[in-house]
Each structure stands twice: as structure tokens, then as C-alpha cells.
């Protein structure tokens, strides 16, 4: 399930990258052909912060592909997608990580994190239950511990 999501995500990422590269090329072509009054390029700005954003993008692409005319436009690069700048900058580092400073990480915490596709960053005093660790491995939720080398309470946390 998680790996499927990951695959889908990377697929769309690749497709987007191609589309964006194509877009740059296409802009030049459009500029070059401007004298011949070609139809203007249609740019759609998308932001990819979470799974639902991704889903809506996929749906949008499917909708466009359903109509042969827009499909052709999509292929030619007349319709292009552009990642919204601020979202693409933040998605990797900030919004995909949940920070837990204290308390316990239980199975339900992991399940929530898996649903939102986020990574867990744990403070020094956070305890991860055995079941939560199993679940995290199973669902592919990454757990990152901060200050691992501080050994005063390090042994307590394991």
C-alpha cells in the first residue's frame, strides 16, 4: 500500500518533470511561432503537498486525457502543469514531517502518520512502543530520532 503510493508519487513526479521540461521547450517554440499566432500556452499551477493534492492532479490529468482534443494539447505541451514554487520548496522538509517532543508513540500515532504520509521526528524523551515500531516498519513510516548520541537518557529510550 505504502510502496504503491510511493510508486505512484514517483511516477507523477517524473511525468511532471517531463511536462515542465517540455514546457520550457514549448515556451520557446511558442515564442518563435508567436508571429504565426499559434494558440497560447495554457499553464496550470499545481501544488503537491499531500496525497489528496496528488489525487486531484491525477484526476485533472485523467479528465484532460478523456477529451482527445485536450489530450493532444497535453501531448504537444500546449497545456502544461507548473509546480507552485512555495509548495514544492516546503513539501520535502516541513509539511511531511511530524514532530513529537514528548510522550509515547503508539500504534495509532503511526497509523495517523501513515495516512498523511508523513515522517516522524522524535525528541529525546519520546518512547516508541514495540507495536508502534512493528507497525511503522510494516507501513513504511520513517522514524527519525533526534540527538541520538546524547547518552544520559539514551539507554532509557530504547
Amino acid at each position: 500500500m505504502a510502496s504503491e503510493n510511493e510508486m505512484l508519487r514517483s511516477l507523477v513526479r517524473d511525468a511532471l518533470r517531463e511536462a515542465l521540461n517540455g514546457a520550457n521547450g514549448a515556451t520557446e517554440i511558442v515564442k518563435a511561432l508567436a508571429v504565426e499566432s499559434k494558440p497560447a500556452q495554457l499553464v496550470e499551477v499545481v501544488s503537491l503537498n499531500n496525497d489528496s493534492d496528488l489525487k486531484s492532479l491525477v484526476n485533472r490529468v485523467l479528465d484532460l486525457a478523456a477529451d482527445p482534443q485536450t489530450l493532444a494539447a497535453l501531448r504537444e505541451g500546449t497545456i502544461v502543469f507548473q509546480l507552485s514554487q512555495q509548495s514544492s520548496n516546503h513539501s520535502a522538509s516541513d509539511s511531511n514531517a511530524t514532530r513529537i517532543e514528548k510522550g509515547a508513540v503508539t500504534e495509532s500515532t503511526i497509523r495517523k502518520a501513515a495516512e498523511s504520509g508523513s515522517t516522524l521526528i522524535l525528541g529525546r524523551k519520546v518512547v516508541v512502543t514495540s507495536l508502534a515500531r512493528d507497525k511503522a516498519r510494516e507501513m513504511g513510516v520513517a522514524i527519525i530520532r533526534e540527538n541520538q548520541q546524547e547518552n544520559q537518557k539514551g539507554s532509557v529510550m530504547r
Binding site: G103, A104, T106, E107, S108, V127, T129, S130, L131, A132, D134, V156, M157, R158
Partner: peptide, 23 residues
């Protein structure tokens, strides 16, 4: 035991401070 300690940890989270848990 795994399920129980998980539930126990959850309960402690609400009430007090969990120091450690192990199975």
C-alpha cells in the same frame, strides 16, 4: 503483550509520564 503495552502506553500518555516500555 504487544497490544497491551501499546494500550498501556496510550493510557499513560493521557495521565502521566511514560518512562519506558519493553516487550
Amino acid at each position: 503483550v504487544k497490544a497491551a503495552t501499546d494500550a498501556g502506553a496510550e493510557a499513560v500518555n493521557q495521565v502521566g509520564e511514560l518512562v519506558s516500555q519493553h516487550v
